[in-house]
Design a protein around this nucleic acid. Structure first.
Lengths: 315, 315
DNA sequence: CAACAGCGATACTTTCTGCTCATGACCATC
DNA sequence: GATGGTCATGAGCAGAAAGTATCGCTGTTG
């Protein structure tokens, strides 16, 4: 960025130019601006040095000063400049209060369907002028990469605060999502009661491809004494459920990945329970967030607490 | 004009912000701008005070600094501001050299038809981007009023430099326009030779309404021993000529008000000649003219000298 | 693990800018 | 010719801005 000979131009001088032009007198302009006449005189002189010519004709005596043609040009453009600075000030005010801005959020399928609708609705209610741009991926690494590159400002991530921290992020815990068994209705008794791991030890299983969640899932099952054998894998939650409905087998999935209202499947807590997956919201460590993002994080924590409450109530 | 809390915003700081953002380092930005690292550090700190928040995240160690969301907003708008300042600098450069601007000129009929075509053509050749706005009136008082009010920057006026000066203007003499007799061809001999005042002492005369030019005209005729009696008056030069052609009488008019090429009338110098009318170009005393106006005045002087030469040659 | 190198922050110093105050010069008006 | 209102200007002072030197932090390297 080259700044030309007007490098030394000062906005204050333009404001003074305007005041003098409309008041007609250095003294009255000074009064209006809270300066002394001498200060105005010096400011105009400085302005005239930077623009390279007189901006006022001073007729002498008690007559009003008047803009020279050069002064008229400078004033015309100067007013525009000052208006833009004022506009910037407006924008900054609204930005600082989070009223305006652009917020990019990384997310993944289960959060998108189970949390974001409530969260975005509440957020837009409070900050209607903030643009929200979502980036959705079921690949954790990709979410982290986008976050790392600054493509997303905050991102939902699978994993606890500790793993996010280890990856160079700062994070807040949102919820722990328990693994549940998805079966056909009646397959394990009439109600949604707990099912022991042994009870489906011989069932063929549906699962996800090997992502962090699935690994946690399988590790939990093994620790509970099960050696699952998978007949089908998909990262699409709807596909997994469809496979179960079709009788291909049963699935163990995070609760948020399921559709509890669907009568064609039956959900059961595991007995004993295996460690659930953690979901957190993260951003690059040490980076200041926009006020909108700060508010979003706070709201995410609240909304997730609500979601957890509802899910527990449902069981 | 209210200047908001960003009153203290300095363009220099915005340039520094940009340099740091693109260099990634305070030190390299300083090098590029010709400052020390300390100065850049202080400038950014000052900018952060005026915008009310950090514009860079400083990760510490040898890592690059990076814009905060606030900083990104400020930089975005700041670049626009600086671009506009640069544009202003451009405009001022061209304005100072007269290449751009708006020029308002007061004129009257005979100048408009006899001088302006050449003058404007030459002027536009040299300054194609200057807008010329003409204000034409045959009323001297109105021309002076427009000039006085600043509606016109320069104006052609009937009268010598002395009378313009007395009216509070500064002026340059352009030409002295001789009075000539307009008659029908052959009415006063076969050629365009001089005609004595006595020769048309009894002719009914066509003249203008009582403006400064007409008064000078009649005073000259009386001093030469003629007591003219007017049968028709019009300020429109074409109308006067038409009346002569129609045989209503003869007219004594400034040469520039005539159409020497028209074969339906015959022009004759007066013998003895009476004092011609002076034409000058004037502007408000003590007012600085735009460079374009300065050039216009200079060009007017030259073009008028040419016009006088041609007219003398025609006789 | 320790030394090193790159980076920003800051205390201190110096220079310069920008303001106020006081005064001078100018001009229209009475 | 005196007067009142105007802008310019010099002196003095307070504060801002830039330079110098140094500190502390962090990632890198051997």
């Amino acid at each position: 960025m080259f700044m030309s000979g007007l490098r030394e131009l000062e906005l204050r001088h333009l404001a003074t130019l305007d005041a003098v032009a409309s008041e007609g007198t250095f003294g009255r302009a000074a009064e209006r601006l809270g300066y002394t006449q001498s200060a105005v005189s010096q400011q105009i002189a400085a302005l005239e040095r930077t623009v390279g010519g007189k901006v006022f004709d001073r007729p002498g005596g008690p007559r009003r000063v008047e803009l020279t043609p050069l002064g008229a040009v400078v004033l015309d453009r100067g007013r525009d400049l000052i208006a833009r600075v004022d506009a910037l000030d407006d924008v900054l005010d609204r930005f600082r209060s989070g009223q305006v801005g652009r917020l990019t959020v990384g997310t993944f399928q289960s959060i998108s369907s189970a949390v974001l609708p409530h969260l975005v609705a509440r957020f837009r209610g409070q900050f209607p002028d903030v643009d929200i741009a979502l980036f959705e991926s079921d690949d954790d690494d990709e979410l982290e990469a986008q976050l790392e590159r600054g493509q997303t400002e905050v991102s939902f991530l699978v994993g606890g605060v500790d793993v996010a921290t280890a990856a160079g992020f700062e994070a807040r815990h949102l919820l722990t999502d328990p693994f549940v068994l998805i079966a056909r209705p009646g397959q394990f008794g009439p109600g949604p009661g707990p099912v022991a791991v042994d009870a489906f030890a011989d069932e063929p299983m549906i699962g996800q491809h090997e992502n962090s969640c699935q690994l946690l899932n399988e590790a939990g099952l093994r620790a509970a004494g099960l050696d699952p054998s998978y007949v089908f894998r998909s990262n699409d939650n709807g596909t997994v459920a469809a496979m179960v409905r079709a009788g291909m087998g049963v699935a163990v999935m995070p609760l948020l990945c399921t559709e509890p209202e669907d009568p064609r499947t039956s959900l059961h807590p595991l007995d004993p329970p295996i460690p659930g997956r953690n979901v957190s919201i993260a951003w690059r460590a040490g980076r200041t967030l926009s006020p909108a993002a700060e508010a979003f994080v706070q709201l995410a924590i609240e909304v997730c607490a609500d979601v957890v409450g509802e899910l527990e109530f449902a069981h």
